[in-house]
Design a protein around this nucleic acid. Sequence first.
DNA 1: CACGTTATCGCAATCGATTGCAACAAATTT
DNA 2: AAATTTGTTGCAATCGATTGCGATAACGTG
Lengths: 342, 342
Amino acid sequence: MSEQFQGGLRLLSKPTKLADIAALAGVSTATVSRALSGHPSVSKATQARIQALAREHDVRPNQLARNLRLRSTGAIGLAMPLGHARTQHLTDPFFLSLLGYIADLLVDRGYDVLLSRVLPENGDWLDRLVDAGRVDGLLLVGQSDQYETIERVASRYGPLVAWGVHRDGQRHLAIGSDNVAGGRLAAEHLLERGRRRLLFVGDPAPPEFGDRFAGFAAAARAAGVRAEVLATAMDPDRVHAAMRTRLAVGTLPDAIFAASDVAAMSVLRAVSEAGLDVPREVAVIGYDDVTLAAHTSPPLTTIRQDLARGAALMVERLLARVAGEPAEHAVIAPELVVRAST
Amino acid sequence: MSEQFQGGLRLLSKPTKLADIAALAGVSTATVSRALSGHPSVSKATQARIQALAREHDVRPNQLARNLRLRSTGAIGLAMPLGHARTQHLTDPFFLSLLGYIADLLVDRGYDVLLSRVLPENGDWLDRLVDAGRVDGLLLVGQSDQYETIERVASRYGPLVAWGVHRDGQRHLAIGSDNVAGGRLAAEHLLERGRRRLLFVGDPAPPEFGDRFAGFAAAARAAGVRAEVLATAMDPDRVHAAMRTRLAVGTLPDAIFAASDVAAMSVLRAVSEAGLDVPREVAVIGYDDVTLAAHTSPPLTTIRQDLARGAALMVERLLARVAGEPAEHAVIAPELVVRAST
DNA sequence: CACGTTATCGCAATCGATTGCAACAAATTT
DNA sequence: AAATTTGTTGCAATCGATTGCGATAACGTG
């Protein structure tokens, strides 16, 4: 480490810490610290000398010690509760993109990002994350089925922001899109195209998807048509299987609203395997507007959630909370993106 | 924080650290530390009492202080150098899946994951990551165009593992798949299907893609046919545009090998837009076998890279290096997955 | 020449947890 | 009853960087 020759300057091993540089330069650790941070009270000459030494030996202040002293970690936790998808890995491009945007923004602002993919096995997971003291704040990418846990922890821990829905009386700060409005957009677009036999495909249990269906069904009802629902788990294989079964029996829908773009891809496949033409015989619309949506065949009409904006809002409000300022929830408006599948 | 009433036990504010619990329990901090870690030298009675107190007040040892004292961080850095894709966000499902697998494995082993998406603006980025002392080891998801930098840093820093190619004489430890073999598999499969007008689509500059094309071309040559190359940047729009242009002129290929599955999706779209049937008129094969590959229409034949295994190898070898043990590079064999697009 | 300024720099406390060693009490042995 | 062992606990140093305050030297001024 940094044992040095009895009073001499010859280090027995590589210098790694500020004290080593201090010994080399013949000054105190305090001076080295100040020199590296550009403190004005250390002379230009020593400042340059010390910085050169530090650079030469690849010595940088240890962040752990620094953060301990400064009582701040410089890191934000980014967690992804996977409650209703225990067996599934994080593969949904929507969440991954959101995660990427968030990571970008945080890094830009000088924060480190501590990633924890969480399988909530007991109600303890969030407390552990919060109390470990490794992060200045916590971002939750999705609420999953952990609404209660999040509510409980949020009541005692401020710097916590989740992506997801906001209900009346909710204590935790959530940023999300208006899924009811999104579902309505989808229905209105299909109705405008003259479609009348509407089918919703997806899992209506999670609140986001439930809202999408609610908006969809409400708009349909307003137009005097009924929206059928094909309930299925959201992983591609299950969606595909459910869709194939559905297409084999009963009257064919002439428009399908998939709860997510990934689900829509499975729908597209099942539909084309059934020999049906998209969009002539069946229109398909997705949700999210992930990057790949523009590159399916045919390109997918979808309801866009502005992830860049969502991520920016999450980061902005979280950092406000970290700084002790108040911050409220926000809703971003969904937007219809028309492509060739409708 | 933890100021307490002059000699009394009434805390003025919430207890947050072990010393606070110590004051509450009327013991020393040392005893609290030992009690929480289940050290045998503290009596069962006090141990239970202290644990109850800590649980009741949501107090857990501060990880920063703990790690500083223990000279280990309990965290692994996970960085994604984006050299030849400066403007692009991390959206490639291949890298994201790899990232997900790695994060899972590390969390399972009790490590935290410190995520840094890096835009290498100067040769300094990797040194900073290494010398900040926040992580016990570093995982690089992709080498991008930073081969030289990685080589340099690896020569002085052991616990560093990258996903990517291994060249003779390479100093840094890399795990990757045999891209030459993968390219060969693709060509052989297409030739077996009777295809003769082979086209490679993608950017042959990055070493992985270059190898894929090399294997592809070699196998074609061995069969007496020539493999054409359509060089293009890898983002979906550029691939789509390049493909559309290519299909408009010259002789049509009867088989297309895309450098990645994501690129293959754009190829599929361009081909179907040109009114060509897949696979009757044009066969399409991708590379990676990302989750979505099974759900394109038609489902994509592809060369599978076993990411779960790749991630496991990366983590295993990194942790060996962290523990000071030697570890060598590894190559995983690609595998042909036949679906409906060929 | 005495005294006040100013520019540099070091001392030592601090952040919070861990742990070797010593201190002490209780229990056991002689 | 004295000596020894066993079982618990506290003291204090340590990890490495930061920073308020005081010390020192160099400088200028009357």
